[in-house]
Amino acid sequence: MGNSNLEMDRKPALNPKKRVKPSNLLYSQNIAPYFFVFPFLISFVIFFAYPVVSTVIMSFQEVLPGQVTFIGLENYKELWNPTFLKAIRNSMVYTILTLIILIPLPLVLAVFLNSKVMFAKNMFRSITFIPALTSVVVAGIIFRLIFGQQEGALLNSILGSFGIEPIAWLNKASTSMFTLVVLATWKWMGINILYFLAGLQNIPRELYESAEVDGASTWRKFVHITLPLLKPISIYVFTISIYGGLSMFAESYMLYGSNKSPNNIGLTIVGYLYQKGIEQNNLGFGSAVGIVLLLITLIITFIQLKFFGMFKKEEAR
């Protein structure tokens, strides 16, 4: 495909006469760009724009098999309830905690893994990446068993040998959030390390060399060279971590074996959407939840990008 692309671009420029032929649309330089973005446009319209538009419409409807009625803002009015607020709070707390852990820690680890003095680099890279390949379902079930409430459960039996009473990990808001964050850290650490490693390898070695000549310490090199030059990749990781946090669902679902957790301590926004829309067969209401989630994510991302100065004109680096 790459070859045909090149030739198509070149041909009309070399042979201006041929371009005038109205029948030969294939060689038109005006159409070519549209032609090449066409696949993307199609998939965007079918798999993104259409669902979003129909979700907006459904959020104003009561959707039942064979009976669809417009009910105005009724779904949005019902949204203002303690369970939904709790779901928002859970998702927010989870997102913030994962951001606090899953940005700095992988960054530091990536610097270690990129360092010349580190031994067995490739082995550690693989080990940290393996959890990312595990399915959430498998990981969730294993974590459920590790964090069981009986004395015999793995974690409690380890704590027991230090004389600590068994803890019902999944029954309290704090410990259950802890479990979720541990699961997220274990699972996503490797991916984030990978991103940062890619960023680190793009930093020109000459910068460090000249800093060394000037007598900069390792710490100063990290703060004044590594961190600033990692900014673009950090923004990227930050943004996808926000998405990931706000859209978390499967981890909590698998940890509790269903979407039901005591006092809804594991309920996330997507979990609530699923509960209302699918489990209670109220797709209109579920759509309203989805639209609110979309708005929340948009606002947060907008603020964050503004904060990082992404809307400013690109300055010379």
Partner: peptide, 19 residues
């Protein structure tokens, strides 16, 4: 009924019998 069951599974019983 489905909503009552969900409430029993998440809030009512846990609050009264554990909390």
């Amino acid at each position: 009924t489905p909503e009552v069951m969900d409430a029993l599974r998440t809030t009512i019983l846990f609050q009264a019998l554990v909390d």
